[in-house]
Amino acid sequence: MRDLIVTQNITVDGVIEAGDWFGPADGGPEVLEALREQMARADAFLTGRVTFEQMRGFWPAQTDDPTGVSAYLNQVQKYVVSSTLQEPGWKPTTILRNLDEVRRLKENPGRDIVCTGSIDLTHQLIAANLVDEYRLFIYPTVVATGQRLFPDGSPQTLTLTSSTTFPSGVVLLTYRP
């Protein structure tokens, strides 16, 4: 069974909603290297429709992307959880209609399935107990407003499996439920 990994860029106060506090290269070259290592361990990228459409409108056009994110996203098998999306328009992409299909995807052979962004989908995955690991890139920023990784009423007991501090002040914490 494959692991479903929630990887989020998050502020010290727990906000995962993107803002001007985050950019893919903001954590420095060491954070980018950690991202590349994670991309190498995953062969599936899971997202919700809104995040998928935002990414589809941006990443394929990034021809001089030094981060490697564009190249990865253009080739990795993408899965979009959506009840309304008809034609993804970004290959290779498969549309999953519900969380039961996500559960079946986890049962297939393969490497990690990574979910990044997609706040609503992430909350649904947490509520359905489908998350096997959290990889949190914590940025030394407090924004004091925005959506959080764990919504109210979703208590979790997590076990820290690793931590890495980067020169930029970003900390990568890895937890398993």
Score class of each variant (00 low, 15 high):
V76E: 06
V142S: 09
A34P: 00
L136N: 01
E30C: 11
E107T: 04
G19W: 00
G146V: 11
V171W: 02
T157Q: 14
L149K: 09
C115P: 07
Y139S: 14
T164C: 07
A25G: 12
R148Y: 02
V15P: 02
G27V: 06
T94G: 03
I138E: 12
I126A: 10
L105Q: 03
V143L: 01
W90T: 01
G117N: 06
N74M: 03
D64P: 11
S163D: 05
P66A: 11
F150T: 06
E33Q: 13
P140W: 03
V170A: 07
S70V: 07
E53D: 12
V31Q: 12
T141D: 08
D20N: 15
L172E: 08
I113V: 15
K91N: 11
Q38S: 12
D152Q: 14
R148K: 15
T116N: 01
T159H: 14
L105I: 06
W90S: 10
G14D: 10
T141F: 00
A71M: 00
L125T: 10
I119C: 02
D132Q: 10
Y175D: 06
D64I: 05
L46D: 11
V143E: 07
T159C: 02
Q54T: 10
V170N: 07
T164E: 13
A42C: 09
Q86T: 04
E17S: 08
G19N: 07
P109N: 12
L46H: 12
T157V: 15
A71H: 08
L99I: 01
D26C: 08
V76Y: 06
V80S: 01
G68Q: 13
G117M: 00
I113L: 02
R97T: 05
G110T: 05
T11I: 09
D152H: 10
I95R: 00
E53C: 02
L85E: 08
D43M: 12
P92D: 02
Q75M: 11
G153K: 12
I113Q: 09
E17K: 08
D112Y: 13
T47W: 06
P24Y: 11
Y134W: 05
S162H: 13
I119A: 03
F22A: 10
D3R: 15
T141M: 04
P24M: 11
E101H: 03
V31L: 10
I10L: 07
L105G: 01
D65I: 15
D20Y: 00
D152I: 06
L4H: 06
V131M: 08
L4N: 03
D13V: 09
L96R: 01
L99W: 05
Y175G: 09
N98Y: 00
Y175Q: 09
S70L: 02
A144T: 01
Q77F: 07
Q75F: 09
V69H: 13
T11A: 06
L130D: 09
W21M: 02
V102M: 01
A44G: 14
T164K: 15
P24N: 04
